[in-house]
Amino acid sequence: MHRSSPADAPAIREPHHVPVAHVTRGGMIEGVHHGSVVVLDADGEVRFRLGDIEAACYPRSALKPVQAVAMVRAGLPLDGELLSLATGSHSGEERHLAGTRRILELAGLTEDDLRNVPDHPYDPAVRDTWVRGDRPPSRLAQNCSGKHAAMLYLCKLNGWPLTTYLDPRHPLQREIAAVVEELTGRRTAHTSVDGCGTPLFAVSLRGLALAAARIAAAAPGTAEFRVADALRGYPEMASGSGRDTAVLMRAVPGLLAKDGFEGVQTAALPDGRAVAVKIADGANRARVPVTAAALALAGVDPALLADCAGEATAGGGHRVGEVRPVPALVPQARVAPA
């Protein structure tokens, strides 16, 4: 298909992050989380910005829906639960392991063909059970195994090399790199290696939000729509039971959301409104309430976001404070930017 030329790459610099969340205790600010936030209108224009939304950053697993779009365009025949799993960062529950095995079976492959890093399950409770059972780390349990299995399946279908599928020069990774630039609208600033071993592309926070918006608002019949439909229909397959991103998608009708390590989050609505968040210190306790506040700024009913409010800080077994967005992120308290 024809792809328009992307704009120049975002600048590689120390991001100009600003306070985005306060940790309060007894009515006083005890700690501050810095970061950056962008909110896009349905037309892709910036409705709200805080911090540095144009510097290059690593989206980590928040980029997985874009990777999945590239794979579907290249012929990946998965849908529903298995496509959601291929787009996700799973908790290592039995349904996730079974789904990954199923993708490998469809490809005529086994866990030994995976090239992701062996690990214990991501979910703490599942991991504890795994360790108590003296089960060693495995490639299947690692949270990106669904994506890796899908990559292998696509390579098998297209006759591409299997052992080198993580090489940036591999046909699969070249396809993904092109779609990353297309959907973010910018050239990739830098390529590194993600925790699971796949190529990792540095993009701007604004570009990441734009990519999420384009997937969430895509028309039926497109690869983007198939990915969005799978994630919306089976959010727990892309994450896990009780995971905050799944809770958020269940709470807000039509929402498409994906988190990533180091405090990255995207969320987008079917009309193209979208948000992207980066927490500088990678703290999930700030990522969740900041994302909820950004969605409220995008026009989502705050009542739908109640389960994503900031976690409490405790003292003597009692609630004495909370992690909460800075006033600039609270609609009734902020002054509109010039």
Rank of each mutant, 00 (worst) to 15 (best):
A228K: 03
G316V: 11
N284L: 09
F201G: 05
A178Q: 09
D79G: 13
T313W: 00
V180W: 02
C144W: 11
C144R: 12
F48D: 05
T87C: 08
T110Y: 06
K156P: 14
V37Q: 13
L162N: 01
E175K: 00
P168Y: 08
A178D: 08
A62K: 15
A293H: 00
L329R: 06
A230H: 11
A217G: 10
R73S: 09
R243I: 11
C155D: 11
P136S: 09
L140S: 10
I176F: 07
H22P: 05
S89A: 05
E262T: 13
A306G: 09
A107Y: 05
F225R: 13
Q332P: 13
A257W: 03
A211D: 12
V275C: 07
Q173P: 06
P270G: 02
A238E: 10
E236F: 06
R13T: 10
T266L: 10
T222W: 15
P19H: 08
N143Q: 08
P118E: 10
P337K: 00
L104V: 08
L295A: 13
R324W: 06
L106C: 05
V39K: 01
E175G: 03
A283V: 00
V323N: 08
S61R: 01
A298F: 00
T87W: 01
S91C: 07
A125Q: 13
R135N: 11
H16P: 06
L154C: 03
L76H: 09
G233Y: 09
A150F: 05
E224A: 12
K258H: 12
R73A: 09
T163L: 04
A314S: 12
E14M: 15
G195D: 14
A312S: 14
G159R: 04
E30F: 13
C144E: 11
R334G: 15
E262V: 13
G195N: 14
I29K: 00
V32P: 09
G146A: 06
E182L: 12
D119L: 07
L297F: 00
D112F: 07
E111G: 06
A213V: 07
L208E: 02
D52C: 03
E311L: 09
A177F: 10
R127F: 13
S239A: 15
H190G: 00
H16S: 15
A293N: 02
S36I: 01
P124F: 09
L248I: 05
G282N: 06
A314D: 10
H90L: 11
R135E: 12
E111Y: 06
L172I: 05
L183Q: 14
G75W: 15
D167F: 02
V117S: 08
D128K: 08
A294M: 01
S91W: 03
A218I: 07
P118K: 10
L114V: 09
L210S: 07
K64Q: 02
A294Q: 02
R226M: 04
G221M: 10
H2N: 02
H16L: 14
R250P: 03
V227A: 04
K156W: 14
D194L: 00
P168Q: 10
A21Y: 04
P325I: 04
M151G: 06
A333C: 15
L329T: 07
L205W: 04
A141P: 11
P65S: 04
L76K: 09
A283Q: 03
A292I: 01
L166D: 15
